[in-house]
Amino acid sequence: MAQSGTANRLDRRKARTRAALIAAGRTLLTTRDPAEVSIQEITDAADVGFGSFYNHFASKQELFETAVAEVVEEHGAMLDEVTAALGDPAEVFAASVRLTARFPKTQPEMAKIIERVGPGYLTAPTGLAPRALRDLQHAKDVGRFAFGDPQVTIACAGGAVLGVIHLGLLQPEPAAIDHAADELAANLLRMLGLPGDEASEIAARPLPAAG
């Protein structure tokens, strides 16, 4: 029993150290080029010993990749949860765009990491990209959207979202961020085949609460 209790404490300590390193990686990604960050800076930011780093990660690249993967998965899971009650696939897509484009205001850490990762964020094998493909295909299957190659569609829509996030980080005025996010969603709905008036109406609907 004593050995089991000791093992559990060690496991919890390891988990806390790993979580602290990932959190430090996320924070550093918001302000620094990963290539310029040393492992000493990472462990200092995490408030753990230098040697602890290699108990969890083989390199700083692995740490930053893990931090990005965590953000990608959190982002996708959040959108799934927030849009779960919406019945119209077009509104699901629009709400996801509007919420994501508001990240400079609502989730500034995520917004900065998304901007740093850039287009690679749109092709990650887990998290947002597969969910976006799923939602777009469903909307097409039920006749709400019209598009050709889904990967090209993701590139077009995702590139526009990245651009609006960049604008929001440059000019972090809340009302301007909201306006840009809603206008972006309406424009993308038109690109996907919805009439202009309907696209504008969907992009102006009340957003489901996030978190």
Rank of each mutant, 00 (worst) to 15 (best):
M1I: 02
A7D: 14
N8Q: 14
R9D: 09
L10Q: 15
T17I: 15
L21H: 13
T30P: 09
D33M: 13
E36R: 09
V37P: 14
Q40G: 05
E41G: 05
D44V: 12
A46D: 12
D47G: 11
D47C: 07
V48P: 08
H56M: 07
K60P: 10
E62Y: 05
E62P: 08
T66R: 08
A67H: 04
V71P: 07
V71L: 13
V82M: 10
T83Q: 05
T83W: 01
G87R: 12
A90N: 02
E91C: 02
V92M: 01
A94T: 00
A94F: 00
A95S: 11
V97I: 15
A101C: 06
K105Q: 13
A111S: 10
I113S: 08
R116H: 11
V117P: 05
Y121P: 08
L122P: 08
L128C: 00
L128T: 06
P130M: 08
R134P: 00
V142I: 13
G143R: 07
G143F: 07
Q151M: 11
G158M: 12
G159S: 10
G159P: 06
L169N: 05
L169C: 02
E173Q: 13
I177G: 03
H179T: 14
L188V: 11
G193H: 11
L194T: 07
D197Y: 09
A199V: 09
P208F: 04
